[in-house]
């Protein structure tokens, strides 16, 4: 009986996915400028969250380096944007982040638990401070202007990055490497003795996840027109993906996407009008979720559904 429900659900799910795709693919044609900008921002948050989950979800290593990879993409775009066409700029942004993550990963992934989190967070601030110093003392400028691109192009590029991120995350989680990452999160020593090259696997997946954050940064830079080290390497971009993933629930693949959509929407709605209240709500939700919803929204949903089923069984 279980099997038939799964089978009948699959076309429905695919149909829904296709509908969503059509809806978003033509958004710039029928939607307002505001809606295009809003959805771009939401896409960006999903990219950051899902790319964070690719590595940190299964392994349990809480990376706070998202802001560094995102920022590197932003700065690459600001520096190269005037000389190269957009696709090359974005590839460069992604690759620079990839290389940074490869380097940092090889250096630090032997640090466990809280030390890894601290190191990755230190990385964000170190790059921020070094750039600031460089700009003040060497180039004698503060920040940069980024070449402006129309909103629809930014939207489509972000849409493409989003699709690539989700597909990559999906295929990694379904592959044998996804299983291996999960085993690292469970017991790293046993993984190594089961023949998994844990160092290489962790480093590569960490770098792959940085790829998407870098690409997202490269395109977002063109949307912001002016950037400086504080805008580009804002620690908030390190915390946000973690929160969104936890809020949505990391147990299921779609949990982090749901979390990102809800939070990104809230943020875009509230942050310009009531920034302090937004931060307050952000903090309260984070604490409440960690305390009462360890499985996130998806976990809550599953629990509720299970309870529902049990009740039905009890009634029959």
């Amino acid at each position: 009986m279980d099997k038939t429900t799964v089978l009948s659900k699959k076309p429905l799910f695919l149909g829904l996915l296709f509908l969503l795709f059509i809806l978003f693919a033509f958004l710039p044609l029928y939607g307002s400028v505001y809606s295009v900008i809003l959805v771009t921002a939401i896409f960006m948050h999903i990219v950051l969250t899902v790319s964070w989950v690719i590595f940190s979800g299964p392994t349990g290593y809480i990376s706070l380096a998202s802001a560094a990879f995102f920022g590197v993409g932003i700065y690459t775009s600001a520096i190269l944007g005037k000389t190269f066409p957009l696709p090359i700029v974005i590839c460069f942004g992604a690759l620079t982040s990839f290389c940074l993550a490869l380097f940092v990963g090889a250096l630090t992934l032997r640090l466990r638990g809280i030390y890894f989190s601290m190191f990755t967070f230190g990385l964000v601030l170190l790059i921020q401070q070094l750039l600031l110093w460089y700009e003040v003392n060497i180039t004698h400028t503060r920040g940069r202007f980024v070449i402006v691109i129309n909103n629809a192009t930014i939207y489509y590029v972000m849409f493409a990055i989003l699709a690539a991120t989700i597909l990559t995350a999906y295929f990694i989680s379904r592959s044998k490497y996804g299983l291996a990452l999960q085993s690292i999160g469970e017991d790293e020593e046993a993984s190594a003795h089961t023949g998994i090259n844990v160092t290489v696997l962790k480093t590569i997946i960490f770098a792959v996840s940085a790829l998407f954050a870098g690409a997202a940064g490269a395109i977002m830079a063109t949307r912001w027109t002016y950037i400086d080290p504080f805008i580009a390497f804002n620690p908030l971009f390190s915390f946000m993906p973690v929160l969104m993933a936890i809020f949505g629930g990391m147990g299921q693949f779609y949990g982090s996407i749901i979390g990102a959509v809800i939070f990104a929407y809230l943020q875009e709605m509230l942050i310009t009008r009531f920034p302090y209240y937004y931060m307050l709500i952000f903090g309260i939700i984070l604490v409440v979720v960690i305390l009462y919803l360890p499985g996130g929204l998806v976990g809550l949903l599953q629990k509720w559904r299970k309870g529902d089923l049990a009740e039905k069984h009890a009634n029959t």
């Binding site: 809280i114 973690v242 302090y276 209240y277 307050l280 903090g283 604490v287 960690i290 305390l291 360890p294």
Partner: peptide, 22 residues
Amino acid sequence: YEGSSMLASFGLLFIIQSIALI
């Protein structure tokens, strides 16, 4: 516990700071 308490303290950071900002 160390992981989740660290994340909870992030939440406290935002709560305390925004109350002070308000």
